[in-house]
């Protein structure tokens, strides 16, 4: 029998799952779109993982991270629920103990983590605005009639990226429309977009931070060759993109699940687990809190959003 640990990273755009063993080897992994329904996405994810997992593996720990971590943590009865900054740093440090800077661009968040001597010393995250993140890229890809997966390759064709306003997504989009309407070639526009992501990131998230090599770039957007190219160009440093760069959060939380194991064995059978959420507005006082009640097999397991703590 082999002891294994499951890490699930439920982001706004994609849901990632990974199974590791005691030595942090990846046994199997899965990457699917969240499509606005984290519960359904995780059901699909677990089904895929269950099919691929070798028979001698037993799950000894489950961790969840990403923006839906609390909800899915309840659903899977995870033994650890942690924010994505911590998870990303732990995941990266597992494979690259010498890393000094982690750049991360996900679907809705982007962050920079500075590490000195293996310890996180500083980090920054975008403000609540999602400018310059994956969701912006994918909506623009749709607008240009391109698949987001081929977006990066398309950008590499360009020799002359157009200038696109980088500060705000709304301005960037109107800039893009104008450039397209006056007749710029598509690859130059795509390349300009990739470059604007880099400039936006360095201005908004990376401001005032000392970016020192080795630099690792991860998160979904790190799979975009165009963005990687312009990071190299602008920072004038080598950028490492791991083949599992999109899974680092899930790996990190799996490692944390291993470190925090409680000695329980977990089942991946979810088909008989009923999981519902009900939203309501509390009318007991003038705060009118938006309450969310979570039911697992018709049993109330948690409720969120109450300011007074009565629920």
């Amino acid at each position: 029998m082999r002891n294994c640990y499951l890490g699930v990273d439920i982001g706004s755009i994609s849901t990632k799952g990974v199974i590791i063993d005691e030595e942090n080897n990846i046994i199997t992994s899965c990457y699917i779109w969240t499509e606005g329904n984290p519960v359904k996405a995780v059901r699909n994810l677990i089904r895929n993982i269950k099919e691929e997992i070798p028979e001698d593996c037993v799950i000894k720990g489950i961790g969840t991270t990403g923006s839906a971590r609390k909800l899915i943590g309840l659903m899977l009865k995870a033994n650890i629920v942690k924010n994505e900054i911590t998870a990303h740093a732990v995941g990266t440090l597992t494979f690259y103990p010498n890393v000094r800077t982690i750049l991360e661009i996900g679907g809705q968040d982007s962050k920079i983590i500075l590490i000195r001597n293996g310890i996180i010393t500083n980090y920054a995250m975008n403000t609540l605005c999602a400018a310059g993140t994956g969701s912006f890229l994918s909506s623009q890809a749709k607008r240009l009639g391109l698949d987001v997966n081929e977006f990066g390759k398309y950008a590499l064709k360009s020799k002359n990226p157009v200038k696109i306003a980088a500060r705000c997504t709304v301005f960037a989009e109107s800039d893009l429309v104008h450039k397209a309407q006056v007749g710029y070639p598509k690859e130059d526009i795509v390349a300009g977009l990739c470059k604007s992501i880099v400039l936006n990131y360095l201005n908004n998230v990376g401001k005032g931070k000392k970016i020192e090599a080795p630099i690792i770039f991860q998160g979904g957007v790190s799979k975009n060759e165009g963005v990687v190219k312009y990071f190299k160009e602008v920072l004038n440093e080598d950028i490492i993109v791991d083949k599992n760069s999109h899974l680092m959060g899930a790996i990190g939380i799996a490692v944390l699940a291993r470190k925090n194991k409680v000695g329980k064995t977990y089942s991946l059978e979810l088909s008989n687990v009923k999981f519902d959420t009900k939203a309501m507005e509390c009318t007991r006082c003038s705060n009118n809190c938006e309450l969310l009640k979570i039911y697992r097999n018709n049993e109330l397991v948690d409720s969120w959003g109450s300011k007074c703590g009565k629920y």
């Binding site: 923006s67 942690k82 924010n83 994505e84 900054i85 911590t86 968040d109 980090y123 995250m125």
Partner: peptide
């Protein structure tokens, strides 16, 4: 998320 990671 921001507070939790900062405190961590």
């Amino acid at each position: 998320t921001r507070l939790e990671s900062f405190v961590d």
